[in-house]
Design a protein around this nucleic acid. Sequence first.
DNA 1: GCAATGATTTACT
DNA 2: GTAAATCATTGCC
Length: 198
Amino acid sequence: MKLPESFYQRSNVVKIARELLGKGLFTRVDNTVTGGMIVETEAYSWKERGCHAYGARKTQRNAVMFGKGGHSYVYLCYGIHNLFNIVTNEQDVADAILIRAIEPIEGIEEMKRRRGRLSNSFHLTSGPGKLTKALGIDRKWNGKYLVGNEIWVEDFGRNFPTKDIEASHRIGIDYAGDDAKLPWRFTLKGSLWLSKVV
DNA sequence: GCAATGATTTACT
DNA sequence: GTAAATCATTGCC
């Protein structure tokens, strides 16, 4: 069952980030479905400095974050990598969740082809730049509605006890000062597909 | 350990 | 309008 729009439009982005663990993220490109289970997320909010929309600064790039929850925010980082975010909360409240890693389930052969030769198959989707490439996501996907047929989040009806979920500080945002220490990164404990060993 | 790589932003003229 | 610095990373050494 697909997650409804209302799932994303709640106000607590950190809570939503935690609940996204164990859900499925899928894309359909040329009638081929690829995707997997989300095992790593990070929450971002306009209230803290790690976020592109910090201080509610609206620019051309982050405009979609100010829209309603339930849309995608895709942008290019380091000139090479597309990073995929899920926009949450209501109109004009710029919160989003970065998907950092998934565990492949569907269309694995297709994902391997997109990624090219890998030294280690665990590298297929274990990182924010890698999973977008595996799923065929690029900047053209920016602003897509997540309750449709091209990209969606699936609820497997599985619940993970708190002890299986680990919260830690976010990665790669040292410039955010004290905000970089917020425990807003969530991982499924023991997953082999995390982007980085905790 | 570190270079690659380009959109985006900010600070100027 | 133009230019320089910045960056939510990866993959190869």
